[in-house]
Design a protein around this nucleic acid. Structure first.
Lengths: 183, 183
DNA sequence: ACCTGAACACCGTTCAAGT
DNA sequence: ACCTGAACACCGTTCAAGT
């Protein structure tokens, strides 16, 4: 005798995202997610294989939204201005939603095919802007990696409470970016 | 009636380091550490306030060893060669001991005073080499931040299984570093 | 087809009791 | 002074049973 579903896979993912955003991945417990969906813990396993599968699904959604935000905020007259706007958007997202940012880069989730696919897709906007800025195809991978490393490292240091020796952190960000984009 | 101690604070820290190195911070359970020290879980609380205190103590030790490794491997004829050697040493440490590297930058440990102090001390070698390479004092903080962000970001991307689109990752690392050091 | 209660092994942590 | 056993609340996960 079928019983009507009290929740859905999508709703559970949405709940997972909101918990991670508000309180971090460690706060995402099966019981907490289930409670917010109006079900009991064990029922969640009808929708996801385990906690990690739910976390991966949430991370995949977050990556797509992050990339959409990046795209929508990449504005500017010149290619370089657009790249700077994209970098600022990247840093802003990490500053506003540090837990969501960390979720996307969780090492134990990197093997998930959905995340790998989303990541591959997510680099495209950067490649397009670098192309518009005159970076030749054969140098794209190298330059892209350098830019991504710099952005990821900078926001990572900020999230980890490094950079607390005073001084103008914004200025350092801008100057480092400018140097790298002069490649 | 005093009983002779079966272990010591230092031994527990050492055990914690070896567990994290081999299996990551998640594998560091109170029971696992205690078992390896020949005591029971609850006894560990005579030496550390809680799991986080043990983790912080281990991270502090790791930072000091990391910086010592960096210093010992910073060799080269010219200042720029020495900086490149230091960067290579940084990347090598993270590649060989990814779990220890991640431990040093765990966000929830950043507030620990021992870690903050060790980090402040740990940046000194970089500052010295940048000074030798001609970076003026007023630009030291900016340049240092850019270099650290780049190094941290690059090894972070490598640890997170990013950079799997093929191509020469070593070359990208070298080229990015060269660009930044031309500041 | 989906949900639940009960159960299991495993966490971190506390505390009274042992020596 | 340090260690232990027992206990607690809380994890993720499994499974037989309910509808």
């Amino acid at each position: 005798m079928p019983t009507p579903p009290k929740t859905s896979r999508d709703e559970l993912i949405e709940i997972a995202c909101s918990i991670v955003q508000a309180r971090g991945a460690d706060a995402l417990t099966i019981a907490a997610v289930a409670a917010e969906a109006g079900i009991k813990g064990p029922s969640l396993y009808k929708h996801f294989a385990d906690r990690n599968a739910l976390l991966s699904a949430a991370a995949t959604v977050v990556i797509h939204r992050f990339v959409a935000t990046l795209r929508s905020e990449t504005n500017g007259r010149s290619p370089k201005q657009r790249l700077q706007a994209m970098a600022a958007s990247y840093r802003r997202f990490a500053a506003r939603s540090p837990h969501l940012y960390q979720l996307m880069y969780k090492p134990e989730l990197a093997a998930d095919p959905g995340i790998a696919e989303a990541s591959r897709l997510g680099v495209q906007p950067l490649f397009e802007e670098l192309h518009a800025a005159g970076v030749p195809a054969k140098r794209m991978l190298i330059v892209g990696r350098i830019v991504v490393a710099y952005l990821h490292g900078f926001v990572g240091m900020e999230a980890g409470l490094a950079f607390r020796l005073g001084g103008d952190v914004d200025l350092a960000f801008e100057e480092g970016l400018r140097t790298i984009l002069d490649l």
